[in-house]
Design a protein around this nucleic acid. Structure first.
Lengths: 147, 147
DNA sequence: CCCTATTAATTAGCTTAGCTAACAAAATAT
DNA sequence: ATATTTTGTTAGCTAAGCTAATTAATAGGG
């Protein structure tokens, strides 16, 4: 039997686990020709559809100038398109191109492949725990209480 | 009963949960006067004791020049000291100062406080799952198979 | 209807953090 | 004694974040 962990200890483990996990996975990013923020923004577009730049910035929890520059680079790479909104000429609609969608899928495969393999190698019991916990992690990460 | 998740789905949830969690927590960093990498390196020093710069860089999975500059800044802030190793004059021993230790504790409290509170509000059953999972997450994040 | 205020995005310029390449100094090995 | 390896630093590049200031377009109030 393991020692019962306090909420603080659980928080520390999750925090440090998340940091280390992402550091490890990040290394594979460049192999796919996408940076982390690019992959992340592209993912929002692919799964959420076209949207104005400001909304994308908000979804990525980033300020507008940051997203503006990110999108400019991605446009040069032909990963996304932008067009003026016909309703509101201030607004810019951003969308993923076919190339962008394709590259995103590849990048996700690369990035997640190793993690998936490591999980698949775990015992069924561990997989069950991780499955439950991954859902809880998402819930907590998105919960209002957090900030 | 919930649908049984594939290893791929678990990987996706953990990945996306980790990203979102850290984005939320990162916002509190600046309040404490420490950047993320600073807090992380300081944490290694506080819990691991003084060590040569290269070892610290390896622990942080960063190249030597990156750590060298980080340490230079932290020395200016009087968070760490560095001194030439008496045994090996090439080597630089880095250690946390009292001020550094104190600031780290504060920063961790800020950063983890909200997460801890969110966990503490969960049911005992959820806490049990999270406790088990947080251990597994650490294991996987540090496992050789990952990369 | 016009003038003001607000909103959406961009540009300019700064900071932090990562990298590689080139170098200096010290230790090790031949 | 010299050549190699190791440890860190410096220089210079890139990516990604920010704020402040600007431009253009819409919305609102008198």
């Amino acid at each position: 039997m393991v020692k019962k962990l306090s909420a603080r200890e659980i928080a520390e483990h999750l925090h440090s686990g998340a940091i280390r996990l992402l550091r490890r996975l990040r290394k594979t990013d460049d192999e796919a020709g996408l940076t982390g923020p690019q992959a992340s923004a592209l993912s929002v577009l692919v799964f959420g559809g076209a949207m104005p730049l400001g909304k994308l910035a908000a979804a990525e929890q980033v300020k507008a100038p940051t997203m503006s520059r990110l999108i400019k680079e991605m446009e040069n790479l032909q990963l996304v398109t932008r067009r003026r909104d016909s309703e509101d000429a201030r607004s810019v609609q951003v969308d993923a191109t076919k190339k962008g969608r394709h590259l995103l899928v590849q990048a996700r495969d690369r990035r997640l492949g190793r993690l998936e393999a490591a999980i698949a190698r775990s015992s069924p019991e561990r997989q069950r725990i991780l499955a439950e916990a991954s859902a809880l992690l998402l819930e907590i990460a998105d919960s209002k209480e957090l900030g």
